[in-house]
Simulated scan of single mutants.
Amino acid sequence: MHLGGSLTTESACAYAHSPGVPPHPGPEWTRFICISDNHSRTQCDLPPGDVLLHAGDLSSWGYPAQVMKTLDWIKSLDYPTKIIIAGNHDLCLDEDVPPFGEDLGPESLATIREYVRGEEMKKANVHYLEYESFEFMTAAGRKWIVYGSPASPKHASGAFQYSERQAAQLIYDKIPSDTEILITHTPAKYCLDLTAKGKKAGCRVLRERLKSLEACRLHVFGHIHEDAGADMIDTDAGVRVAVNAAIARSGTAMIVDLRN
């Protein structure tokens, strides 16, 4: 499903945000609002929900001020839980990227890296994940286990990138088997990863890892702006919703309802 449609099963529903989207289905469900790749753009119509998920590329060119613009916006949004990761554009958040640009020495980079994990963010219910898990409970009492990874295959220069299969395996082998909600910046290979040039640009290693993540019911990613949308993937354990939540072109959030 690309933008404008909907997908529904007995345990999961996915919609592109529009006036015709059904209301929250009730306390037996959790509504996730999924976005990615806003690239410092903060003019986006977001619907109500239980959880906001952002799959990276908070900024355009990785400068702290650009990241802060998005963080301030996310802090202001009225969601009980907000979970974010970085992407390949978010250079200032990657400790392996050397200082760049004017007035961007180690001190200013350390400041933004501390801030994104700091108390002000937590007080606003914003949780930044970088190769780590996070557990939260909804108002209805459902506990969800989330894992976030900012990594993506090497393309030009950027943050959190890998170029070798072995490096990718080290990254994705870290995903715990009990992960229910997976947020990555890159798509998996052959899943909503088609570029404008006709290339399937997702990660093959991530695709292989997902096959063994039986508990994973929702995979949210972005990176490939042209292929935003959702898909339902049959697994041995049931249905997994895959969402390319990139809003860089459409400005349209994706809504996913999961039965608790």
Score class of each variant (00 low, 15 high):
Pro106Gln: 11
Thr138Ala: 08
Pro64Leu: 07
His89Phe: 00
Thr81Phe: 05
Thr111Phe: 11
Cys44Pro: 00
Met137Val: 15
Pro153Gln: 04
Ala14Thr: 10
Ile35Gln: 03
Val239Gly: 08
Ala228Lys: 01
Met1Thr: 14
Leu93Trp: 12
Thr70Asp: 09
Arg117Leu: 05
Lys122Glu: 09
Met121His: 04
Met232Ile: 10
Val256Phe: 01
Pro22Leu: 10
His39Asn: 03
Ile233Phe: 12
Thr9Val: 02
Leu206Asn: 00
Ala14Tyr: 13
Leu93Met: 09
Gly105Asp: 13
Ala140Arg: 07
Ala124Tyr: 04
Gly62Ser: 11
Val241Lys: 09
Gly222Asn: 07
Cys191Tyr: 11
Gly118Phe: 00
Ala14Cys: 15
Ile112Leu: 06
Thr235Tyr: 07
Ala230Gly: 03
Ala16Phe: 12
Tyr79Asn: 08
Cys13Asp: 07
Asn260Ile: 07
Glu180Phe: 08
Phe136Ala: 08
Val220Gln: 10
Gly251Cys: 13
Asp173Asn: 15
Ile84Ala: 07
Glu226Tyr: 08
Arg117Ser: 10
Ile224Glu: 01
Leu213Cys: 02
Ala167Ile: 04
Met121Lys: 04
His24Glu: 05
Thr111Pro: 00
Tyr15Pro: 01
Val51Ser: 06
Ile112Glu: 08
Leu3Gly: 12
Met137Asn: 04
Pro19Glu: 03
Thr70Arg: 05
Gly26Glu: 07
Lys211Gln: 14
Leu46Gly: 06
Thr70Tyr: 10
Ala86Gly: 15
Trp144Tyr: 14
Pro106Phe: 04
Asp37Leu: 04
Ala86Val: 10
Tyr15Met: 03
Thr30Gln: 05
Ser59Gly: 10
Leu182Ser: 05
Gly222Trp: 01
Cys44His: 10
Pro25Val: 07
Ile171Arg: 13
Gln166Ile: 12
Leu7Asn: 01
Lys189Pro: 01
Leu109Ala: 07
Glu132Gln: 14
Ala245Lys: 03
Pro99Asp: 09
Glu114Val: 03
Leu192Ala: 04
Leu194Tyr: 10
Pro27Met: 05
Val51Cys: 11
Pro176Asp: 02
Gly118Val: 05
Arg113Cys: 03
Asp50Ser: 09
Gly87Met: 09
Gly251Phe: 06
Gly105Thr: 00
Val243Cys: 14
Glu226Ser: 14
Val67Gln: 09
Tyr147Asp: 08
Lys211Pro: 01
Ala151Trp: 14
Thr252Val: 15
Ile112Pro: 06
Gln166Glu: 15
Arg165Lys: 15
Ile145Lys: 15
Val243Leu: 11
Ala55His: 09
